[in-house]
Amino acid sequence: MENRSSPTWLVADFFTHSYRISGRLNVRHRLLADQLNNPTSDFLQIEDTYISNVEHPADIMASQTSAILYKKNVTTVVTAQQQDGLPREHSYGNYFGAYTRKVFMTVPSFEIEGYLRLSGKLDLRTVLTSGTDDFITILDGSMRFSIRPDISFSGGAILINKRYIGAFCMEEE
């Protein structure tokens, strides 16, 4: 069994429709997905925050030591490491019976490609409607800015707010 301790701080890129917000989130040795899907809090507090307009994603337009994000307005979160974005049911070696499918989806401003890890029967609708989680995790994902395809972001995991998904396509086996 993998012996991996979860980090306290996790660096990630948080995206809203128009902004890229980079910063450190105190995950308190838990999972980023748990924080995003925690129904008891609508907010995320991030530290060492750097904000860019998505059209100029490398230009830092503002930086603050601390910021609060309203989770309902976060469309996606990109983490460099896959394990940092895995949901609980797929973390720490709980891969028994799991398989992956290539997916493509759209959210406002972005097109996203990557791999969805599933277990059980394959059903597109169930993926989006079952459970109470607001965010689903795409592995080895990349997202392109719709109006400027030359601007793209990639990471080991991309967590996507289900409420913003427009089209959701899954490749057949």
Binding site: S22, P57, A58, F153, S154
Partner: peptide, 23 residues
């Protein structure tokens, strides 16, 4: 930098850096 996207690499090279590493 902790910002490790391709756009960040390009911005670093445009600023005159010789190399780029993401944390």
């Amino acid at each position: 930098t902790a910002r490790g996207q391709p756009v960040d690499r390009q911005a670093a090279l445009d600023a005159g850096a010789d190399d780029f590493m993401s944390k």
